[in-house]
């Protein structure tokens, strides 16, 4: 056991090295490094694989409990998990404070546009919240909105899995089926989350037939990437930053641009914006959350497979509980990310 474990540690750390310093062009090496990490995980899982199946080892199932106040009789691993979530909280706090620093420290693109202090052909540095693009249409916001509900529902299903795993007065195979199905549902919802995210970032989706009318006459929703909302966007153009688009309509009457439009002294055409910082904060924050979901998926894959052979019984249902704690946290973070980055 310990030999395999050391190999796990050894290779995991080694793999991080490789993944880190190679850079993005050397994909095979990155894959090799991920392979090494996965190999380590496999060694770890192999030890847990038969643990608790068919009542095996049941007399060895032992969950150490806390001795001292204030956590008297609380599982030690549960306390540790809460500690871990504490540091995770600080990670997202740091990301959010970065976001707020830039959101409030750099003039908003719409404000700059309305001030009229820009010249066509020269990019101005300003902050363009992703929400400006995403919240502009119900279709654009759909992936994010569906994702929110997917995660909330998955939080519910993981609790259901725990509930059935803990139930003592049901048939062995009923429990096995229920636990596996609920864990599987959670897994599917998590996959759905990442898939929709990829669609939103890179792929986009069509809006055929009657949907076209609802979508202002467009037959597709372009991905953020296709819209030019990228980390190297130094001359981004949003349709709302076009004086033609605004010609006479929905521009605040007290803005400088409105006065200029009335007098005919406004800068013509489209404003170009350098939005690298805005895109960076958006992609890195939501991406960090996505990485947490991916980590959850890897764990869930294993747990679902184990549940399929009846690996979870009331004796070791705590594994699901610990995973659930983490999963609720990921869910909660998304509930904060969504309004910050998608709505406002």
């Amino acid at each position: 056991m310990s030999a395999g474990f050391a190999a796990f540690l050894f290779t995991l750390a080694a793999a991080f090295e490789w993944g880190d310093f190679i850079g993005w062009t050397e994909v095979p090496l990155i894959l090799a490094s991920l392979g090494v990490v996965f190999f380590g995980l496999l060694i770890w899982w192999r030890q847990d694989w038969s643990y608790g199946v068919d009542g095996k080892d049941s007399k060895h199932l032992w969950e150490p409990k806390s001795a001292g106040s204030p956590f008297q009789n609380i599982d030690i691993r549960k306390v540790a998990l809460w500690m871990f979530l504490m540091s995770e909280m600080m990670v997202f706090t740091s990301l959010f404070s970065t976001y707020m620093r830039y959101r409030f420290g750099i003039p908003n693109c719409m404000t700059v546009f309305e001030s009229g202090e820009w010249v066509e052909g020269t990019a101005v540095t300003c902050f363009e919240p992703a929400a400006h693009l995403i919240a502009s249409s119900w279709f654009h916001i759909a992936p994010g909105a569906i994702n929110t509900f997917a995660l909330i529902i998955s939080s519910f299903t993981i609790v259901q899995a725990l509930r059935y795993a803990k139930m003592k007065d049901i048939e062995e195979d009923v429990r096995k089926r229920k636990v596996m199905r609920y864990l599987g549902t959670t897994w599917v919802l998590a996959i759905l989350f990442l898939t929709l995210k990829m669609i939103e970032w890179f792929i986009g989706f069509p809006t055929p037939g009657p949907l076209t009318d609802l979508n202002h006459g467009h037959s597709e929703i372009a991905s953020l990437y296709a819209e030019g909302y990228t980390i190297n966007a130094d001359s981004y153009q949003h349709y709302a930053y076009d004086t033609m688009y605004h010609d006479g309509k929905d521009i605040p009457k007290d803005s400088a641009l409105y006065t200029m439009l009335q007098e005919g002294t406004h800068p013509g055409g489209q404003m170009m914006a350098n939005i690298q910082v805005s895109a960076t904060t958006f992609y890195v924050t939501t991406g960090t959350h996505g990485a947490h979901v991916l980590g959850g998926i890897i764990g869930l894959t294993y747990m679902t497979l184990k549940a399929a052979r009846g690996g979870y019984t009331p004796d070791n249902a705590v594994s699901i509980e610990y995973f659930g704690l983490y999963w609720h946290f990921v869910d909660l973070v998304w509930v904060l990310v969504f309004p910050f980055f998608y709505l406002y």
Partner: peptide
């Protein structure tokens, strides 16, 4: 991680030209 991403994939956390601080 911000510095690392800035150096590796070209995000703009500390890119002064793009408004980074």
């Amino acid at each position: 991680i911000q510095v690392y991403l800035d150096r590796v994939i070209g995000t703009a956390f500390y890119d002064i030209a793009a408004g980074g601080d």
